[in-house]
C-alpha cells in the first residue's frame, strides 16, 4: 500500500466524517454494484424487434453510416464486393479473425483478396463482426479477443461491420447485458461502441469526415436469424 494511497483515502474519509473504507459504506457499495440498477432508459428504443431494427438503421444513417439489409449470411461476400465496386474501393480485405467471417463463402467473389488478423497501415478495407447493434443511436458494439482485432476498427479507410438482426437491441444497457451473458466474468480488454465514421470539427467547427479513424462506415445487417 503506497503512502499516497493511504493519504488519499484518509483525506476522503475525513471529508465524509467517517473512517476510511468503513463497513457500512462497503456494504452500500457492494449492494449498489451488484444490483446493476438501471437508471432512466429512453423510451425511444423500446420497440418491437422489427421497429427496433428500423430505428437502428435510420439512426446509423443519420450518424453518417451506410447500411445494407440482407437476408442471409451466404450473401455477405456479394454485399461487400458490390459495395466496394460501387464506391471504387480496393478489393483487398482484411477480416477480423472470427470463424463466422473467415468461414463465409468468399469463393463466390473470386476478385476479392482475403487476409485475416491485425491490420497493417497499408490495409485499406477492414471487415469486423459486431456483437450488438443499439437502436437508440445506431451504435455498433464490438470487443477484443482471440477472434477480433481492435485496431482493425480504426486503421483501415473503410470499415465494414456485419451485425445480425437478432443482436439489435433498444438501449446500451441491453447490449451490456448481452455482453455480460456472453463473456462471463472475464471482461474483454476493449469494448468499442461505434456510431458512424470518424470525424472532426476542430478547424473552425466545420465538420470533416475521416479524421484518424475510418472515412467510411458500412453496416451489413443480416436479418435471417430473427427470433
Amino acid at each position: 500500500m503506497s503512502a499516497a494511497r493511504t493519504a488519499i483515502l484518509n483525506d476522503i474519509a475525513r471529508g465524509l466524517g467517517r473512517a476510511p473504507l468503513d463497513p457500512a459504506a462497503q456494504a452500500a457499495v457492494t449492494r449498489r454494484i451488484d444490483s446493476r440498477t438501471r437508471n432512466t432508459v429512453p423510451l425511444r428504443g423500446q420497440l418491437p424487434a422489427a421497429e427496433q431494427r428500423d430505428l437502428f438503421v435510420s439512426q446509423a444513417q443519420a450518424m453518417g453510416a451506410t447500411v445494407n439489409r440482407i437476408g442471409s449470411t451466404e450473401t455477405i461476400p456479394d454485399a461487400i464486393a458490390d459495395y466496394l465496386a460501387g464506391h471504387n474501393l480496393p478489393t483487398e480485405l482484411i477480416l477480423s479473425p472470427d470463424p463466422d467471417l473467415t468461414g463465409l463463402p468468399w469463393q463466390r467473389r473470386p476478385l476479392l483478396s482475403i487476409k485475416h488478423g491485425a491490420p497493417w497501415p497499408t490495409d485499406m478495407v477492414g471487415v469486423a463482426l459486431a456483437v450488438a447493434g443499439v437502436a437508440e443511436t445506431g451504435t455498433l458494439v464490438l470487443h477484443s479477443g482471440a477472434h477480433a482485432s481492435t485496431s482493425l476498427n480504426f486503421t483501415p479507410d473503410t470499415h465494414i461491420v456485419v451485425v445480425h438482426g437478432s443482436q439489435v437491441v433498444g438501449a446500451y444497457e441491453d447490449a451490456f447485458d448481452m455482453l455480460r451473458a456472453k463473456v462471463g466474468p472475464s471482461w474483454p480488454r476493449t469494448v468499442n461502441l461505434i456510431t458512424g465514421p470518424s470525424r472532426t470539427a476542430d478547424i473552425e467547427q466545420t465538420l470533416i469526415m475521416g479524421a484518424h479513424g475510418p472515412r467510411r462506415l458500412h453496416v451489413i445487417l443480416v436479418e435471417n436469424q430473427t427470433a
Binding site: 477484443s144 471482461w187 480488454r189 469494448v191 468499442n192 456510431t195 479513424g213
Partner: peptide, 18 residues
Amino acid sequence: EFSVYTTFSTGPRRPDDV
C-alpha cells in the same frame, strides 16, 4: 446523439488477444 467512439478499456491485452 452519441460520440462516434466510446471505448471501454480493461487491463492489458489477454494472452490470446489479436
